[in-house]
Write a protein that binds this DNA or RNA. Structure first.
Length: 346
DNA sequence: AAGTATGATTATGT
DNA sequence: ACATAATCATACTT
């Protein structure tokens, strides 16, 4: 309240100086007797302020009302707004537009992809499952860990949403509060609707920067969760015995060319209840480890060779055709365990 | 606890 | 796109 006269004074002062249409002599009214005149002015103002505090509230209110009802008031208000607009814009008018923050977009995309900011639980878990499959091809068997992961994710999701809502609410509350305040003040100060709008924009920007922090920390939490639960390297489970047997059977019966085709991989994956990627991993590891130390695998190789031989015998005993079920190791790349002769590896 | 086995990842080459 | 080789990180064995 007490800065009202000062503000008015300074604004009119700036306005006079800046407004082109006003007569010159008004600007230099106190120019001649500079020092003393100004002192006198300040004294007057101080006096006014003191009297304001002396006035009763009703009286002040009445004066205000009278001022507001003055017939020149709207015009003056507009002029003052215009002047203020000009000066403010000239000071910081250029930095208005805001390009969509790339980092914010990145965070948004990630949250959407992880199913945190997505529609609801159904879509969210589906997205999470897709992310899991993409990250490392975790099989469908470890459902216990997966549900644990999903539970933790939905927890994060819930926190995120409640926090976001809180921020939103706080932002709205604050915005309406500020708007009401400015509107109220616009009865006594030159505040244009445009300025209020700008203020609202500033508030929104501030709040969205806070939101970004929330998004960032949420992303972090999701990342940690993922690395804990979905990085299969951390939670490695050995394949079950049956799966290993199937894979080994294929490997040793195709020792000459242990490179299953895409279809063969798919079939093996199906039989072993693992993914095609895991089949590829297995064969990659097996080939290199076999090659590195054939002696170590000799026993295993012989065992599987014997087994397939028995199978073949059984099969041939049924049908007259004596064809082995799988291609025999003849012109291959890996030396056979029993009679290792030529090694044809790169 | 140390050592080994094993599934996954990464770097590199073709 | 796929293969290899090295490496990582865990599971399993001794």
């Amino acid at each position: 309240m007490d800065e009202q006269p000062r503000l008015m004074h300074s604004h009119t002062g700036v306005g006079m100086a800046g407004h082109p249409g006003l007569p010159q002599h008004m600007q230099e009214g106190t120019g001649g007797t500079d020092g003393d005149g100004r002192k006198q002015d300040i004294g007057d103002i101080l006096q006014q302020i003191m009297t304001i505090t002396d006035q009763s509230l009703d009286e002040a209110q009445a004066r205000k009302h009278a001022l507001n009802c003055h017939r020149m008031k709207p015009a003056l208000f507009n002029v003052l707004c215009e002047i203020k607009e000009k000066t403010v814009l000239s000071i910081r008018g250029a930095q208005e537009e805001e390009p969509p923050d790339p980092q914010l977009m990145r965070l948004d995309n990630m949250l959407l992809a992880e199913g945190v900011s997505g529609p609801e639980k159904g879509g969210g878990s589906a997205a999470a499952a897709a992310a899991a499959a993409a990250s490392g091809g975790v099989g469908a068997d470890n459902s216990a860990e997966h549900s644990d992961y999903r539970a933790k994710l939905s927890q994060i999701r819930q926190i995120y949403h409640t926090e976001l809502e809180k921020y939103e609410q706080a932002c709205n509350e604050f915005t309406t509060h500020v708007m009401n305040l400015l509107r109220e003040q616009s009865r006594t100060r030159p505040i244009s609707p445009k300025e209020i709008e700008r203020m609202v924009n500033i508030i929104h920007r501030k709040f969205s920067s806070i939101q970004m922090q929330l998004k960032q920390s949420t992303c972090e939490a999701v990342m940690i969760l993922r690395s804990r639960f979905l990085d299969a390297r951390r939670k490695r489970r050995n394949f079950n015995k049956q799966a290993t047997e199937i894979l080994n059977e294929y490997f040793y019966s195709h020792l000459s060319n242990p490179y299953p085709s895409e279809e063969a991989k798919e079939e093996l994956a199906k039989k072993c209840a693992i993914t095609v990627a895991q089949v590829s991993n297995w064969f990659g590891n097996k080939r290199i480890r076999y090659k590195k130390n054939i002696g170590k695998f000799q026993e295993e190789a012989n065992m599987y060779a014997a087994r397939t031989a028995v199978n073949a015998a059984n099969a041939s005993s049924h049908g007259s055709q004596a064809n082995s079920p799988s291609t025999p190791n003849s012109a291959g790349g890996y030396p056979s365990p029993c009679y290792q002769s030529d090694r044809r590896i790169q």
